[in-house]
Computed example of a mutant assay.
Amino acid sequence: MTAPSAPLVLCIGAVLWDVIGRSPTRMAPGADVPGRIRHVPGGVALNVAAALAARGRAAAVLGAVGRDPEGEALLAAIRQAGVGIDWIHRDAGLPTDVYMAIEDTEGLIAAIADAHSLEAAGEAVLAPLRDGRLGSARSPWRGAVVVDGNLTTAQLSAIAGDPALAAADLRVVPASPGKAERLAPLIGPAHVTLYLNRAEAETLAGHPCASAAEAAAAVIARGAARVLVTDGARPAACAARGAEVLTCQPPAVSIARVTGAGDCFLAAHYVAEAAGQDRAAALAAAVAAAAAHVAGS
Rank of each mutant, 00 (worst) to 15 (best):
R171N: 05
R79C: 13
L186I: 09
L186E: 10
D97L: 04
A240K: 00
A288G: 00
V219D: 08
V271C: 14
A54R: 15
P163A: 07
V83P: 11
P140C: 13
L196M: 11
P41S: 07
G178P: 00
L204A: 05
A267N: 01
G56P: 10
V253F: 06
P34G: 04
E273T: 12
A124W: 00
Y195Q: 03
A199V: 02
A164G: 04
A180F: 05
R26W: 05
G232Q: 03
P208R: 11
S254I: 12
G178K: 06
V145C: 08
P140F: 15
A281H: 11
V19A: 06
C238R: 11
S176M: 10
G161Q: 11
D104Y: 05
A286S: 12
V61I: 01
D148P: 13
V192W: 03
R79E: 14
G107P: 08
T25M: 14
G84K: 06
T152N: 08
L186H: 12
A205Q: 07
L246W: 07
A158S: 11
V15C: 12
A127H: 07
D148V: 07
L194K: 07
A284S: 15
A239S: 13
A212C: 07
E214K: 04
A160L: 03
R138Y: 03
H293Y: 03
A115P: 00
A111W: 03
A81C: 02
S157T: 14
A291Q: 07
E103N: 11
A212Y: 02
I159N: 04
I20H: 04
L16W: 00
V61S: 02
T96R: 05
Q80S: 14
P24V: 07
H269Y: 14
G149S: 05
A225S: 12
D104A: 07
I109R: 15
A286V: 13
V147H: 10
A281T: 14
L46G: 01
